[in-house]
């Protein structure tokens, strides 16, 4: 009896394993299909995307070369990297300071700020799309440096909210001890509070990086004509050069996915934890 149910369990888990393996393959197949097509000539893609390249359709790295040249992909990757890194750095620094301050210094204004920041998370981008573009233009923020300010503004809601939640859970004693030692708030924040914030900082960093790296409409409206980030460059492939070149499109999709996959594989643990933490708190 016991042995049979044991056996049952074993068979069950093998079946489960097979099921999950099949599902995983299914989940990854879209990426492989794109990868496969990126090596095919542009006229052999849209009608037969599921066929492997053969001697007639294989074009080697041609699509990559023409795509990189057309879209100036390296520039795009550079701008994406610059904007993401600098915006995330700014968000981490400033919103953690703000969150700590408005959590610790309790007054009506600060709690009002907290609520406004939090509520801003709900508002869809289209609400401020047009006016923000205008304001940013008037203040000369429509360049790759100015856009950092805009991202800081848009990132404030979620980031302050998450940092605040964490700060509330830090015991006050640490900070008080530091104050008694004669450290001012600035020293206290950077020497005592910041190290404690590390786990939540990783979370906030990951959430904001994912958002900014993949963001299309905001950078398109602000700086898209002069500085194309990767999503803008890909969208521009459609129509920007007369008519779409499917080969180059496939190659650029692959190039857009590669950095994400590399980043994911290297920091997988943090990403999943961060995303869960972000969701649970948010």
């Amino acid at each position: 009896m016991e042995a049979r149910s044991q056996n049952h369990k074993k068979i069950g888990s093998v079946m489960l394993f097979i099921l999950l393996t099949v599902l995983s393959i299914l989940f990854l197949s879209p990426i492989f299909i794109v990868l496969m097509n990126s090596f095919k000539g542009k006229f052999f893609i849209s009608e037969t995307p599921f066929k492997l390249p053969n001697s007639e359709t294989f074009v080697g790295l041609d699509n990559y070369l023409s795509g990189i040249e057309k879209t100036k992909f390296l520039h795009a990757a550079g701008w994406s990297l610059f904007i993401t890194l600098s915006s995330v750095t700014a968000i981490l620094l400033f919103t953690s300071m703000t969150a700590w301050f408005i959590t610790r210094v309790k007054n009506k204004f600060n709690s009002m700020l907290y609520y406004i920041f939090t509520l801003s998370m709900i508002v869809p981008f289209q609400m401020v799309m047009f006016t923000m573009t205008k304001v940013a233009n008037v203040l000369h923020l429509d360049n790759p440096v100015g856009i950092i300010v805009i991202y800081l503004g848009f990132g404030t809601g979620l980031s302050v909210f998450m940092f605040s939640g964490f700060v509330k859970s830090i015991p006050l004693e640490l900070e008080e001890a530091s104050m008694i030692d004669g450290c001012g708030p600035i020293k206290t924040f950077f020497l005592v509070v910041m190290p404690v914030l590390k786990p939540i900082t990783v979370t906030v960093a990951i959430l904001n990086s994912m958002w900014i790296w993949n963001d299309y409409l905001l950078p398109y409206l602000l700086i898209g004509m002069d500085y194309k980030t990767i999503p803008i460059a890909i969208q521009y492939l459609k129509g920007g050069y007369g008519s779409i070149d499917m080969g180059a499109m496939m190659a650029m999709l692959v190039l857009a996915i590669i950095p994400i996959v590399v980043f994911y594989i290297t920091c997988q643990k943090y990403i999943i934890e961060g995303v869960v933490a972000g969701a649970v708190k948010g």
Binding site: T98, W100, V123, M132, L152
Partner: peptide, 22 residues
């Protein structure tokens, strides 16, 4: 000013003013 103002300005410029204006 040191702790809150930078964030507040960015938030005001990027979100709050455009929101009200909208």
């Amino acid at each position: 000013p040191i702790f809150v103002l930078p964030t507040l300005i960015a938030f005001t410029v990027a979100f709050f003013i455009p929101f009200l204006l909208g």
